[in-house]
Amino acid sequence: MEAIHFGGGALGRGLVVPRLVEAGWTVTVVDPLPDLVEALDRQGGYGLEMQEGGATREIRVPIARALHPERDRAELMRRLGEAPLVTTAVRKENLAGVARQLVAAGAGRAAPCTLLGCENVEAVDEALTQALIAAGIAGEALARLHIPRTVVDRICANAWPASTTIRTETYGELAASRAGPTIPGIEAAQSIDALFDRKRYLVNSLADAAAILGRSRGDTLLSQAFGDGALLAELTPFVDALQRHLALEHGLDRDGLVRYAATSRERLANGFIPRRLDTVARDLWRKMQPGERFFAPLIALRRRGEAVEAALDVLARLVRLSAALEGAPGHPAFGPAELRAVADRHGEDPALRSVYRDTADRIGKGG
């Protein structure tokens, strides 16, 4: 079983490649960094370092080849034309480049292939399909591709260029929608959307919120913020609202969600993988948009007639504190006026409008 993996970064080498290798796949890694490709190819793999029970251990992850998409184009085209599995772990904006490679390699391909997007991107299957269409894929070639929806979760740190070693936690989630062929090493899940939202809200939203509070108190690492019980207690009404939304939206068990949130807090408090708060609490204005991780679940709850006032108090405090964190190029500052502007743009949606206006009013009252 030969798999081609695009993306030699932390998540790709920390989660996707090890899962495939453990399941018996022979993996070729493709990355645009020439020095990294040369090092991985020369070493025939890399180290994966993790901590268990306070002890650190390192395992070796073997790979078949490491290829550069331009320098090694001929070999890449050949391997892509034959591999039954292609996985990606790149930035969303780089999926277009992967799609062009796949279209170029698949012109004469007759055998089916599974294309697995392992980015932390909602509905990544749709993003990949659109990228392939934009790259000019033929209808029959697209029909031969199985592109499942996925969810991925593992905290990883990339040591490159100091070394090729990836440092990671033991926890890992990599699942694909159940429809379609079985993929050895990849869990098949009935509802990827439920798992994705659970991860987005009870890991990502939680991490972002704690990072804002932590930076306001002078913390520099995510583990410091999650080691502060008083800080986490401030977030309790918000986390409770997230759990209620997940239970109502996806039918997830509330007790299971409580356990999942507790596991998330434990994972994010792990100092073995240092995460700087300035790399977590960033791009906050995008994350505060109606369809994103802070406001979307509260809007959905208000549409259901659920109480969200205590959670809005938390959001108001986060927005007020975020003003000191934003303002750098590409990261605009925002506050009550910006929230009210969003509300005004969505006047046709009473729940959305009221959630944004109520949050803005709370900020004005010192929230």
Rank of each mutant, 00 (worst) to 15 (best):
K199R: 03
V280G: 07
G335Q: 14
G53N: 06
A311P: 12
G271C: 04
A225I: 10
R73I: 11
K287L: 05
A89E: 02
G45F: 10
L268D: 03
G347H: 11
G12Q: 02
A176I: 13
T165K: 09
R109P: 04
R198M: 13
Y171K: 12
A3V: 01
W25N: 01
Y260K: 02
P290I: 14
Q43W: 07
A64Q: 06
K199A: 03
A131L: 07
P112Q: 01
G7R: 01
D361M: 07
V124Y: 02
T263K: 07
L298T: 07
R267P: 03
D197E: 13
V314K: 00
L116H: 00
R60Y: 05
I155E: 09
R100S: 14
G185I: 00
V29Q: 00
S322L: 03
A39G: 09
H245W: 13
F272T: 09
Y356P: 01
L145E: 04
N270E: 06
V103S: 12
A123S: 14
A157Y: 15
I212T: 10
V319G: 00
L339M: 04
P69V: 05
E338N: 02
L11Q: 08
S216Q: 15
E58I: 15
C156S: 11
A23W: 06
R286A: 12
A66Y: 03
T28C: 11
I299P: 13
D313E: 12
E187S: 06
V17M: 00
D349E: 13
D278N: 14
V124C: 06
G180H: 11
A111C: 02
A66G: 06
A134W: 11
A262Q: 14
T220F: 08
D219I: 02
V319L: 02
R286L: 06
E169S: 08
A351H: 12
M288Q: 06
G180R: 12
A225H: 14
R57Y: 11
G7K: 03
Q243P: 02
A262P: 04
L142D: 08
G8E: 04
L242S: 12
A99V: 15
R60V: 13
R42T: 11
R345K: 11
P290S: 12
E49P: 03
A241C: 13
H346R: 10
R178E: 05
L115I: 11
R353E: 06
D41V: 11
A74E: 15
T114L: 07
L11C: 03
L132N: 12
A138K: 11
A96W: 09
L246K: 05
L312F: 00
D208Q: 10
